[in-house]
Amino acid sequence: MRFKHVFSIIGPVMVGPSSSHTAGAVRIGRVARQLLGQKPEQAVVTLYGSFAETYSGHGTDLAIVGGLLDFGTDDERIPDAYVEADKAGLRVEFRQGEEFRPHPNFAEIAVFAGGREVKVSGASIGGGNIEIHSMNGFAANCSGYYPTLVISHDDRVGVLASITGAVSGARLNIGFMNVDRKERSGAAMTVIECDRRPDGELLDAISRLPHINEVTVIDLT
Rank of each mutant, 00 (worst) to 15 (best):
residue 40 P to R: 01
residue 45 V to M: 06
residue 20 S to F: 03
residue 50 S to D: 14
residue 36 L to G: 01
residue 36 L to S: 05
residue 42 Q to W: 09
residue 50 S to N: 15
residue 41 E to T: 10
residue 39 K to M: 12
residue 35 L to E: 04
residue 54 T to Y: 07
residue 25 A to Q: 10
residue 21 H to P: 05
residue 24 G to E: 03
residue 38 Q to L: 13
residue 14 M to R: 15
residue 26 V to M: 02
residue 32 A to D: 06
residue 52 A to V: 12
residue 40 P to D: 05
residue 36 L to E: 03
residue 35 L to A: 07
residue 24 G to Y: 03
residue 16 G to D: 05
residue 50 S to H: 13
residue 19 S to F: 04
residue 17 P to W: 08
residue 37 G to N: 06
residue 48 Y to V: 10
residue 51 F to N: 05
residue 16 G to Q: 03
residue 24 G to P: 05
residue 29 G to H: 04
residue 39 K to D: 12
residue 32 A to C: 13
residue 41 E to Y: 06
residue 13 V to N: 13
residue 47 L to R: 08
residue 20 S to E: 13
residue 13 V to M: 12
residue 29 G to N: 06
residue 29 G to P: 04
residue 26 V to E: 00
residue 21 H to M: 15
residue 53 E to R: 15
residue 50 S to C: 12
residue 49 G to Q: 07
residue 46 T to N: 10
residue 17 P to K: 10
residue 29 G to A: 10
residue 52 A to L: 12
residue 33 R to H: 12
residue 41 E to K: 12
residue 46 T to V: 14
residue 14 M to A: 15
residue 26 V to D: 00
residue 39 K to Y: 04
residue 40 P to W: 01
residue 13 V to A: 13
residue 40 P to E: 06
residue 20 S to K: 04
residue 52 A to P: 09
residue 19 S to W: 01
residue 51 F to L: 14
residue 38 Q to W: 07
residue 54 T to R: 10
residue 20 S to P: 02
residue 22 T to V: 13
residue 31 V to L: 01
residue 29 G to C: 09
residue 25 A to K: 02
residue 30 R to C: 12
residue 54 T to N: 11
residue 42 Q to D: 14
residue 52 A to F: 10
residue 18 S to E: 09
residue 42 Q to C: 11
residue 30 R to F: 07
residue 47 L to H: 09
residue 24 G to F: 02
residue 47 L to D: 11
residue 17 P to M: 10
residue 16 G to E: 02
residue 13 V to I: 13
residue 38 Q to E: 15
residue 18 S to C: 15
residue 41 E to L: 07
residue 34 Q to R: 11
residue 53 E to Q: 15
residue 19 S to K: 05
residue 54 T to A: 08
residue 41 E to S: 15
residue 34 Q to W: 05
residue 30 R to W: 07
residue 17 P to R: 08
residue 22 T to R: 05
residue 49 G to W: 03
residue 40 P to V: 04
residue 22 T to A: 14
residue 29 G to L: 05
residue 23 A to F: 03
residue 20 S to G: 11
residue 45 V to I: 15
residue 25 A to G: 08
residue 50 S to R: 14
residue 33 R to D: 01
residue 24 G to I: 05
residue 42 Q to Y: 13
residue 44 V to S: 09
residue 50 S to G: 11
residue 52 A to E: 07
residue 23 A to K: 01
residue 37 G to K: 03
residue 21 H to A: 15
residue 28 I to W: 00
residue 49 G to I: 06
residue 44 V to H: 09
residue 27 R to L: 09
residue 16 G to R: 02
residue 39 K to L: 12
residue 29 G to M: 06
